[in-house]
Each structure stands twice: as structure tokens, then as C-alpha cells.
Amino acid sequence: MVALVFILGFILLIYFFTYRIKNGYAPILRPIRAFEVLKGLTGRAIESGRTLHLSLGVGGIADETTADSLAGLAVLNYLAEQASVTGVSPTVSMANPMVMLYAQNTLQVAHANDPESAKEASRQIRWIAPQPIAYAAGVMNMLAIDEPEANVMVGSFGDEYLLMGEVAARREVAHIGGSSNPNTLPFIYASAEETLLGEEIYAAEAYLRKRSSHIASLLAQDTMRWLIALIILGNIIIVSIRN
């Protein structure tokens, strides 16, 4: 019951902040450098004549890694929209075939007005292998052979992240990495130029596309975080006084 009340409160907060933003409230989002760099990657790819590689990770779409996979798909959504204008489609790799279907759908939606370019963009989607290590081997090979201009890795990753990240770092490819798994974060910090740590990966739509409902969702998250922090602090004080 507590969980339902919590979720209901969350929903109300999202609608409340969406209403406020649509009525002129302009919240200041703290700058996240990785998103700023991401915005310029398509331009860099056009200038260099090379591709972009986006890894959606080893997560699925019907398990506990769904949110991470959706975060990667949000980045793809942004890059696909840019691709529909510029014609530079990113090469997208993933380990889960369901995520592949979502990625194909994202590219087709972005290229809805041009079926030929939609077909071309869909050819850039690569399902590599379901096992994380085999997937990493495939991505390492792609980074070595295709020599992309930039490597973006946003999704669910485990230790295999380092295998791919190190290849990108050694080849001096512009590299943005993001994951919500605390065990993977040190690997991202060590190998990526720009990092999206923890919950930052879920903010892609709010930062890249500035949609009011997504910014409202961030504000709702912040409010909930403060609420939880205050409850924790309050409990600590009460327990300390009792003892």
C-alpha cells in the first residue's frame, strides 16, 4: 500500500511540474557536459566523414535493466532525429534482440518521411550476441575495423564495459559512457572522456530534447529525493534522541 501511495505521489508531482513548466516556469538544469558533447557528435562525424557508434548495452526490455535500455534508446532517438536531417545514421549495437527491435522502430520513426533513408538507417543496426563477453568482443572488433569518430555507450553494462571502453580510449575515439550500475562506474570513469553516472543516464530526453514532461519528471525525482533524505535524517534524529 505504501508503494502505491508513493507512486501516486510521484505521478501527481510529474503532472504538477508539467503544468507549471507549460505555464512559464523555467527550471535551471545543472550542466552535464556529456550531453553538451553529445549534441556536437553528429557534426564531428560529418566533418570527418566517419560514423558514430552507439552501444545500447547488454540489458533487455522485460527485466530489471529495462530503464537502462530505454535510456540508451532515448539517446538513439536524439541521434536518429539528427540523422534524418543530416543523413549520418549512427551504427547501433546491442546484445538483446528485443532492444534491437526497439532500435529499428526508433530509426524508422525518425525517418518516417523518407522510407529509403529509413531502410538505410536500419542497416546500421547490429545485434551482436546475447552473451556480454561475446558482445564486447564484437564491439571491440567494430571499433577497430569501422574506426568511428565517436563511441557512445549508454545502457546496462557489467565488467565487459572495460573491454570496449579501453579499445575506444586506446584509439583516441571521442568516448561518452553511461551506466546505472555502481560496479561499472569506475570502469567508465577510467576509460571515457565524458561520463553519465548513475541516474544521469535517465535525463537524456530532458537535456537533449528539452521536453517539458521530461523536465517535470526530473523535478519530481528531485522532490522525492529531498523527501526521502528528510525522512532518513528525521529517523536518525528520532532514534538518536531515544537512545
Binding site: I7, F10, I11, I14, T66, A67, L70, A71, S180, G198, E199, I201, Y202, A203, S213, H214, S217, L218, A220, Q221, M224, R225
Partner: peptide, 10 residues
Amino acid sequence: LGTIASGLRI
């Protein structure tokens, strides 16, 4: 919180 927000948005 980010996961809950992503789920609720869907």
C-alpha cells in the same frame, strides 16, 4: 528514482 520515473513516463 530514475527507474521509477522512466516506468511512470511509459
